[in-house]
Design a protein around this nucleic acid. Structure first.
Lengths: 334, 334
DNA sequence: GAGACAAATGTAAACGTTTACATATCAGTT
DNA sequence: AACTGATATGTAAACGTTTACATTTGTCTC
């Protein structure tokens, strides 16, 4: 592969010094118009492109944000990325994405290899067993934590109103007359899931309803686990009248299971989800959910991070909560 | 922000030269065990991380793939990214994504600013007005074109079997007895859309059915445009008995429009889409579609690119076609 | 004990930029 | 004609690595 033109080639060809070429490329005002034009001509003739790595090395800026997500599957994460990208590109930043699969070691090597390639990081680590990694980050390096458990260790953080959203949904179901409200949980170590669980239990308690272990089915945020969980719930002697899945993917799986069990939704069993992914309004029946403006979550994280990058000194730590909103559709009998 | 430990700090602290530290970090065998351990201890105590940009500058490798997509919206693109990321991480590569919004100028600055930050590019440019940009890429730079029109200009290319997929779907509808088959097109300048159009017309021709302009409704691959187009088709004096939308998002929009027009699917009008996004099987009725293994498309593109990066010399240009498969569900009356 | 060879480590150049500082040129002022 | 100040340009160091080559040390062979 023919090595490409460098600033030196352009300088020699244009009969100026590398400093002048650099000034032209960076739109410095200290260049005579004639010189500028000559340099630009040579640059375009030679197909010169400034080398990003070299530039980063000396300026200590990469114009790139690193994003680490637990997974890249499904509409939730794609919406997050979209939001981040929008906010980043507006400021001329690139986005480098990666999924960690919530594995501690892999996450660590990921972070290592991003060092010197990004100006800051957005970390979405709902797995509370892994979230401790945040403490190993170099001090003073711009980081925004999204949906991470508890201690932010001096970093900015954004969280969803998981507790409030779940509480509101359960409260709504109670208002509709439901007394046996089952849930499909997420993994025990998932922070979002555990917060939603808190919200569910609190809502029951506040309505003086008993918490019954058999109504708390296990799940892992995958559609398949939702299917399994709902199939199990449908077989209970004392069947719940409502199922609140802790995300939409599981709710969709639950709808399939209930259909196969010949149970009508919402007449026999009401169903609700969480996230309000785009698909939610198109399933049959349309799915009630706890709406989250997912791309706004991403955009907000990016904006926070860009702020931290551009004003490194003396900032106070920001903690933000992104609100949720109840969206009632036919699946819970509106 | 306190500048972080560099290789020099580690070297001084460990009482060795920078070369030795470098060798340790790169797992070179030419280091005595004692020295290696001492260096590693110091490195971890100082929190040393090799600087990516510096490393890239000297090695001329970034371990990063650049991906340019027309958009980041919807399940199609998120699946592509997932496939790319999977294949890339398997080889220890990062992925830097960006959406171009199909704007020629923006695309160009994107490409410029990625120079020196990526080892190769995956370009998905269905807009045939913009695809000419491929010719401006530095010769010999690894590039894989995905869904780009015609001339690949010496680059590897992957395309969907758009023509064949559309042909098969229309043929299927004809077999089902449909004679007035409408379509919802994509933008005129969209390559995928124009190929699907070719397939549609060929299938009609081969079945000796007339091509009627009023059955070719305009669309732009968005759900809203599908809604509008279907609403228009439903009002035709001589209504089509089947509507084939050129992607699933528009098909979903069409379903909404038909429901509002009080037309039953598939009894009054059959509906089909293209892409078979995950949502397709969950809408009501489940949507027939032309299945594309989207993440495999992304994975394949990444694999091809990695091949070109790792074996730069004497490779012949690869052109691959990713096959499609008919998926018949209830929306077209199976 | 000299020579040869291997193993371990060090020295320094290179990668392609940016930028502080130095220098050159020139118009205007005295 | 010397000085001033502004404007344009050049020189060279720096960024943090890798790596070709040189050097040192130790072991083995004769």
């Amino acid at each position: 592969m023919a090595r490409n033109a460098t600033i030196k080639h352009v300088a020699r060809e244009a009969g100026v010094s590398v400093a002048t070429v650099s000034r032209v490329m960076n739109h410095s005002v200290l260049v005579a118009d004639g010189t500028r034009q000559a340099v630009l001509d040579v640059a375009s003739r030679l197909g010169y492109r400034p080398h990003g790595a070299a530039r980063s090395l000396i300026t200590n800026r990469t114009s790139t944000l690193g994003v680490l997500l637990p997974d890249l599957y499904g509409e939730f994460f794609s919406e997050v990325i979209r939001g981040i990208d929008q906010a980043a590109r507006r400021e001329g930043y690139h986005v480098i994405v990666s999924s960690s699969h919530s594995d501690h070691h892999e996450l660590e090597t990921m972070l290592r290899s991003m060092w010197g390639r990004v100006d800051g990081l957005i970390l979405m680590i709902p797995d509370i067993r892994v979230a401790t990694i945040a403490s190993q980050l170099p001090a003073g390096f711009p980081v925004v934590l999204v949906n991470c458990a508890g201690d932010t260790n001096g970093h900015d953080a954004i969280n969803l109103a998981n507790y409030e959203g779940a509480y509101a949904m359960v409260q709504h179901l109670i208002t509709q007359g439901h007394r046996r409200i089952a849930i499909i949980r997420g993994a025990d170590w998932n922070y979002d899931a555990s917060e939603r669980l808190r919200g569910y239990r609190a809502a029951l308690r506040d309505a003086a309803l008993p918490a019954e272990p058999e109504l708390e089915a296990a799940g892992d945020f995958s559609e398949g686990s939702g299917y399994e969980a709902a199939a199990g719930l449908a077989r209970l002697r004392s069947r719940p009248t409502a199922i609140f899945a802790f995300n939409d993917a599981m709710a969709v799986g639950a709808l399939s299971a209930l259909r196969e069990a010949k149970l009508r939704v919402p007449e026999d069993v009401a169903v609700a989800g969480f996230d309000d992914i785009p698909m939610a309004r198109y399933v049959e029946p349309p799915l009630s959910s706890v709406h989250v403006d997912i791309s706004a979550l991403g955009a907000r994280a990016a904006t926070l991070l860009l702020g931290a990058i551009q004003h490194p000194d003396g900032r106070e730590i920001r903690r933000e909560i992104v609100p949720t909103a109840l969206v009632v559709r036919r699946s819970c009998g509106s």
